[in-house]
Simulated assay, not measured.
Amino acid sequence: MTLRMAKFAIGQVVRHRVYPFRGIIFDVDPVFANTEEWWLAIPEHVRPRKEQPFYHLLAENAQTEYVAYVSEQNLVPDTSDEPLRHPMVPNMFVRAPDGSYRAKSVPAN
């Protein structure tokens, strides 16, 4: 299996290519790292390949905020410049004056 570099970075705001939600990336897996049951629950005609980066998002749609696990092939950059309302964003990120987000530093144990 050949690993490739992730296209998106921690702190980047992205949108789902198909479904109406957006979010901020807080972690990246180089390949699929969820359960087989989770993967098989995705309808086969839209099931992503496992051999690509998968992203953990603090996600939000019109109704709610949640954590999502999304394949790289299903993400596109979000260029709306709208602030995120997910309640965990301020715990993990700082919003810069230009609207970008950067991860808060975590103290070493």
Rank of each mutant, 00 (worst) to 15 (best):
Y55A: 06
A96H: 13
D27M: 11
R4A: 10
P30N: 05
G11Y: 08
T35H: 00
R15Y: 01
D98P: 00
P107I: 02
Y19W: 15
F54R: 00
R15L: 13
E44S: 14
N34S: 14
N91D: 14
V76C: 11
H56N: 08
V106W: 14
R15T: 10
R15P: 00
N61Q: 02
E36K: 09
N91A: 14
M5L: 12
H16T: 00
E60T: 04
F26E: 05
A108L: 15
V94K: 13
P107H: 04
K104W: 05
D29H: 09
V18L: 15
A62S: 08
P20E: 12
N34G: 15
M1L: 06
A108T: 08
A68N: 08
A62Y: 08
W39M: 02
N109H: 15
I42C: 02
P107R: 10
N109F: 15
T64A: 15
Y19H: 12
V106E: 11
I25F: 04
H86I: 04
V89F: 09
H16P: 02
R85N: 12
V67E: 15
L3R: 12
Y101T: 07
E60R: 03
R102P: 00
K50R: 14
T64R: 15
R17Y: 11
R22E: 05
G23K: 03
D78A: 07
K104M: 10
H56G: 03
P107V: 07
P97E: 13
R17W: 09
E36V: 07
H56T: 02
E44R: 13
N34C: 10
A33F: 00
V106K: 15
S100G: 09
V18N: 13
Q63S: 13
V13G: 06
W38C: 06
F93Y: 09
V94C: 12
H56A: 02
Q73L: 13
P53N: 07
W38S: 13
F26G: 01
L40E: 08
I10G: 08
T2G: 04
L84R: 06
Q52A: 00
L3W: 08
V18M: 13
P77V: 08
Y66C: 04
P77Q: 09
V13K: 14
E44K: 12
A59H: 01
P20L: 00
F93R: 00
E82S: 10
E72N: 11
F21E: 03
V76G: 03
K104A: 02
G23M: 07
T35L: 00
A68K: 07
Y55M: 01
P90F: 01
E82Y: 07
P87K: 11
P90A: 11
A9W: 04
E72F: 08
L3D: 01
T2P: 00
